[in-house]
Design a protein around this nucleic acid. Sequence first.
DNA 1: CCCGAATGAGACGCCCATGTCTCATTCCTG
DNA 2: CAGGAATGAGACATGGGCGTCTCATTCGGG
Lengths: 183, 183
Amino acid sequence: MAMDRDQVLRDAAALLSRKSTATMDEVARAAGIGRATLHRHFAGRDALVRALEDLGIREFEVAFDNARLDEGTAVEALRRLVAEAEPNAQLLAFLVTENQLFEGDEVNEGWARLDARVGALFRRGQEEGDIRIDLSAAWLTEALYGLVGTCAWAVMDGRVAAKDFQYMIIELLLGGARRSVEK
Amino acid sequence: MAMDRDQVLRDAAALLSRKSTATMDEVARAAGIGRATLHRHFAGRDALVRALEDLGIREFEVAFDNARLDEGTAVEALRRLVAEAEPNAQLLAFLVTENQLFEGDEVNEGWARLDARVGALFRRGQEEGDIRIDLSAAWLTEALYGLVGTCAWAVMDGRVAAKDFQYMIIELLLGGARRSVEK
DNA sequence: CCCGAATGAGACGCCCATGTCTCATTCCTG
DNA sequence: CAGGAATGAGACATGGGCGTCTCATTCGGG
């Protein structure tokens, strides 16, 4: 029928990224379907959020695959990763803040997988001597998520130009704000 | 009487930082007062959040003052700023995510003042030649907030040691993750 | 010591989002 | 073209949090 589960999830993500308290009715309208239909496919709001979580994890698994994190230097891989993640930055921003709600109870294992891949990437960079070892891989992982989410918000609010998304994140994350004579 | 408005706000902030959906009843219990008393002092949940916003802005105004943003180099001032902001990092993390809800309607002007001060600090650093000019002051401001919030979450989740708070933020923000031969 | 103000506990009623259900309609399928 | 499945719109009951109120109790100033 007209109902495309993944498209509905994407529409829901687009709305909830901006207004995390949106009603099921608002989500349904945003997706162009009836509230009843929304409930037929997602047992409830909770199930919808879980589905969004699954979608996000799937998207980022793919993004990670496309970024070929194992090829080239870790720095190069990181650049590719940010580029691949950009289309789903809003979804990430939503899920990161939403996850604060899941207080320990049954956190989706997918996040651990993603964390592990990002963490491994930073560790590889550290072993190769390209990434500082005084900043833990765990923190760099969190910081990457945080910066992506922050930049996604900044773009939505018009404080950062959309075209600068990748540059702002990568340059700050890798090079920092301080101006150095020679890197 | 026993009711200390500011202390109640601090208790509320401590709880809401961890569980942003906490009930008015939970907030009251966390503050050690009755729900009725809480309502007597704050017209409603919305008023409570606004009061928290005011508290946060006041705290950061003071933190900014204490950091003496105009003294020394911008980089030094930034270090002092992060140090001064640390005690209120959780509150900032809460307010930053909560502010996403205030969709344009009557945003507290205090944020603009704070933004202006941080932005001016980064611009000063750029003019002095210590801060990169290819990263806009607006983005650096957002990134600072984002990193502080992210690190606060990471500390709460135990992914970053509390004692490393300032170091992780300042070093990443200023120096970036990339290891350079000489700065 | 006394009196007034503030508090805590609880009882309501209200509102809104949720989740379920029905029924007419539309759409695909065979 | 006919039948069945899926959808949309709406009605309905429910729950939970919110806001208000009352009343007994406690605290503190005079």
